[in-house]
Amino acid sequence: KRYRAVYDYSAADEDEVSFQDGDTIVNVQQIDDGWMYGTVERTGDTGMLPANYVEAI
């Protein structure tokens, strides 16, 4: 699945990823209600991200 960031996010922990509004997130997997795991296409960084900061595309 592919998602697009709708807000900027700065990683708060080493297992999270930072991204900017408009970034595409690929290979996304749902972890639980609030978190997903995926790769930021622009940077190649992979990690956890907050589900409410992205939307499906």
Rank of each mutant, 00 (worst) to 15 (best):
N27G: 09
Q20A: 09
G44K: 06
A5L: 00
F19K: 01
V28C: 12
D15V: 10
V28S: 05
R4K: 09
R4F: 06
Y9P: 00
D21E: 15
V54M: 06
P50I: 04
D33I: 10
Y7D: 08
T43I: 02
W35M: 06
Y53T: 08
Y3G: 00
W35V: 05
G38F: 03
Y7N: 12
W35P: 03
V26E: 05
E16V: 06
V17C: 06
T43C: 04
A56E: 15
A56P: 14
D15L: 13
Y3T: 00
M48T: 07
Y37M: 11
A5Q: 01
V40S: 01
I31K: 09
Y53F: 11
N52P: 09
I25M: 06
M36H: 05
Q30R: 14
S18P: 03
V26Y: 10
A11I: 03
D8F: 08
M36W: 11
A56L: 15
V6A: 06
E16C: 11
A12F: 09
D45W: 06
E14T: 12
E41D: 07
I57Q: 08
E16M: 08
G44D: 05
Y53I: 06
Y3N: 00
I31T: 07
T24R: 07
D8Y: 08
I31H: 07
M48I: 11
Y3H: 03
M48L: 14
L49M: 09
W35H: 05
E14A: 12
D32V: 13
D33M: 09
S18W: 03
V28D: 01
Y37W: 14
V28H: 05
G34P: 03
Y3M: 07
D21N: 15
Q29C: 15
M48Q: 06
D32Q: 11
Y9K: 03
D32S: 15
A51W: 06
R42G: 05
P50D: 04
W35E: 01
A56N: 08
D15T: 15
R42N: 05
G22W: 04
G44L: 05
E55F: 09
R2V: 12
D33V: 10
V26R: 08
E41P: 02
A56R: 10
G34L: 14
D15F: 14
E14F: 11
G38Y: 01
D15H: 14
Q29D: 08
T46I: 08
A11C: 06
I57G: 05
D13I: 09
G38N: 02
G38T: 00
V28R: 03
A5W: 02
E16P: 00
P50R: 11
V26Q: 06
V40R: 00
A12I: 12
P50V: 04
G38A: 05
E41N: 04
D8R: 09
A51V: 10
N52Q: 13
Y37K: 09
A5V: 05
Q20M: 13
D23Q: 01
A56I: 14
V28F: 04
V54E: 00
V6S: 06
V26P: 00
D15Q: 13
A11Y: 03
E16Y: 09
